[in-house]
Design a protein around this nucleic acid. Structure first.
Length: 615
RNA sequence: GCCGACAUAGCUCAGUGGCUAGAGCGGCUGUUUUGUAAACAGCGGGUCGUGGGUUCGAAUCCCUCUGUCGGCUCCA
């Protein structure tokens, strides 16, 4: 049933791409068509319009033309042609991109770029059987090379909307001509389309860049540069609370904090092998005193290996675990930067454990348990991908070690009751890894924590420990970050919570609103603040000359968990009736509490990192 | 980096070749002393992102640079 529905939706979206091409061909007869696949919520078509640039202002025109074709309810007629005939068709129709695809099909039996590259290199491609017949779909007077499937006629495509246009290289390769990609969404019913648009609207409201400004969390400055966000006091609280949590989880498990400088001689990365691989992503630093070439660190592991290497190590000392939450610098392409999700100064809650081969499982087990605890507390579901090697020889390290390690990853994952799936061929060349994906409140999945085994770097740096037989052995290195990048995590988390942070993370946990500006009121507010601060709470007093209603409103807008109005009544009774932010309140009734009880309860919530109020 | 869109006050935005560039919010000052989502009045605040060009005249048209946003992974 579900499968049928999915297939039907897929055919609808495919047909929409076809109809869009058909409509655009009517509007611009000279267009050259690339590919028009189905994507997550819709479809796109890559089109070469020569010198004509289309923009979203053209969408109504294209949509209207599509609607006409849909209203005509033209049947989709499928036909097949021998490939040689199809090639003649592409030539006659002046469709060079289709021609290229057909030639590839004829030669290699595929149009997938990856497989084509493989073929060129003489490696056997996956789908190598030669294609003899190709499929066409025709509606009205428009015929397109298309594998399908399509719906029966143009009237059966459900609801759609064109969303955006962008440049896209033909086949994703930079030196190929750039085409215009018109992207649309399509759903079976109008209702579903509207729901999806509402979800996008909600996502827009939660956009961390917008909330970052509204809630005063971070700013960017042209003078500092793009991809280099600056955190305000409020945003810094978020960072520090997250980092404290991550550090706590690891210190509890025997990790020791270390500290390294943010620059190093280039030689470090020449030795680690990163220079060759990531050379163009590094920020270079020039010494004016010496002739040394320095770089900003793009990762921490090579530095950490040098701490391990500073002493002879015994098998009894292992695992040796270092943790450091520190910033790395990567010179990302400017077009890829944005908000907090892609930055050039990336703070990682990084850790490296050096262990024996037989300790891998216990280490992974412990790291996964930490990740699970962290994401449970945060309130996000985790799904885990185990990335293994495949049969190719692109991997370094002993084959038996790989097998044992992969097995240990799986056992540890199962022991932690984590939902997981396995993928071969996704491992890093230096070892298998575990990637953790967290899903947010809008159902979007984000890659967050990772655990990576590394069989190569210890060898490159000649790391060793002495085993029971007094022989030198190479340790295995385990890289792990629970949050991943603090900046990227924050971008996800801000959108997940829509800025309604739980008490333990809230930049401002309690706001006191004064009823008047009398000395007695202010003195009282100050006394409460002192008491709260002694309990480690973050309190702000709003003593502005504004109505209470206005100040309540401001507190609501800033999403403060607890707001308390203070005036004569409170001074007299020594009791508060806190206003509790709706998403954390467990009942509609707010009871009166003594000040001490109120503050202690909030402090207790913060310490326990609970998500709901206990008031 | 490439394609496209955008850039006007701290914020959100109006102003599409013609007088001194506007509004709301925020800020400041005064009045008010406020009881659970917006008191009232006044005052500030702009090199219209940068540099150049066209024009009698440019926020407005053209070019450049910088920045922001959507894409550049999805393969007949």
């Amino acid at each position: 049933m579900e499968g049928n529905k999915d297939q039907q939706l897929h055919a609808m979206r495919h047909s929409l791409a076809h109809i869009m091409a058909s409509a655009m061909k009517r509007l611009w007869p000279e267009i050259k068509l690339g590919v028009g696949p189905v994507v997550e919520h819709g479809f796109y078509y890559d089109i070469d319009l020569g010198d004509t640039a289309i923009s979203d202002a053209d969408f109504p025109k294209i949509e209207a033309e599509m609607q006409k074709i849909i209203a005509e309810n033209q049947p989709f007629e499928q036909s097949t042609k021998p490939i040689a005939e199809a090639i003649e068709w592409a030539k006659a129709e002046n469709q060079p991109y289709k021609l290229e695809l057909l030639h590839d099909l004829q030669r290699a039996g595929t149009t997938v770029a990856k497989d084509l590259d493989a073929e060129e290199l003489g490696i056997e491609a996956k789908a190598a059987s030669k294609v003899e017949q190709v499929s066409f779909y025709k509606n009205g007077d428009f015929t397109d090379l298309c594998r399908g499937p399509h719906v029966v006629s143009t009237g059966k495509v459900g609801a759609f909307k064109l969303m955006r246009v962008s440049g896209a290289y033909w086949r994703g390769k930079e030196n190929n001509p750039q085409m215009q990609r018109v992207y649309g969404i399509g759903f079976a019913t109008d209702k579903e389309l509207r729901q999806h648009l509402a979800m996008l609207e909600e996502a827009k409201k939660r956009d961390h860049r917008k909330l970052g400004q509204e809630l005063d969390l971070f700013v960017v400055s042209d003078l500092v540069g793009s991809g280099l966000p600056l955190f305000t006091p409020r945003g810094t609280v978020l960072r520090e609370e997250l980092i404290r949590f991550s550090n706590e989880l690891r210190e509890r498990n025997g990790f020791q904090k270390v500290f390294i400088p943010h620059i190093t001689k280039q030689a470090l990365y020449e030795k680690s092998g990163h220079w060759a691989k990531f050379g163009d992503e590094l920020f270079l630093v020039k010494s004016q005193e010496t002739s040394d070439s320095f770089v900003m660190k793009p990762m921490n592991c090579p530095h950490h290996t040098q701490i391990f290497a500073s002493q002879p190590r015994s098998y009894r000392d292992l695992p040796i675990r270092y943790l450091e939450t520190t910033t790395v610098y990567r010179d990302e392409k400017t077009g890829e930067l944005g908000g907090l999700s892609r930055v050039r100064a990336i703070t990682q809650d990084d850790s490296h454990a050096f262990c024996r081969k037989d300790q891998i499982e216990q280490e992974i087990n412990m790291l996964l348990a930490s990740a699970r605890e962290l994401y449970e507390t945060i309130g996000m579901n985790l799904r885990v991908r185990l990335s293994y090697r495949d049969e190719s020889d692109a991997y370094l390290g002993d084959q038996a070690l790989w097998e044992s390690a992969q097995n240990q990853l799986k056992v540890a994952t199962e022991a932690n009751n984590l939902e997981y799936f396995e993928e071969t061929g996704e491992a890093a060349f230096y070892g298998p890894k575990i990637d953790m994906m967290a899903s947010d409140a809008l159902g979007r999945e984000h890659q967050v924590a990772t655990v990576q085994l590394d069989f190569v770097m210890p060898e490159r740096f000649g790391l060793a420990y002495t085993d029971e037989q007094s022989e030198a052995q190479t340790p295995v290195m385990i890289h792990c970050a629970l949050l991943g990048s603090v900046e990227r995590f924050l971008s996800v988390y801000i959108e997940h919570t829509a800025g309604k942070f739980p008490v333990w993370m809230a930049p401002e946990q309690i706001r006191l609103i004064t009823v008047n500006q009398e000395d007695a009121t202010l003195t009282f507010a100050q006394k409460v603040t002192n008491q709260a601060q002694a309990l480690g709470l973050r309190v702000v007093t709003d003593n502005n000359n504004e109505s209470v209603g206005k100040k309540i409103r401001n507190s609501e807008i800033m999403k403060v968990p607890y707001t308390v109005v203070v005036g004569e009544k409170e001074i007299e009774t020594g009791e508060f009736v806190p206003r509790i932010r709706k998403d954390i309140a467990v009942s509609d009734r707010t009871e009166s509490r003594t000040i001490e009880e109120f503050l202690k309860t909030v402090a207790h919530e913060a310490k326990g990192r609970v998500s709901k109020s206990s008031l």
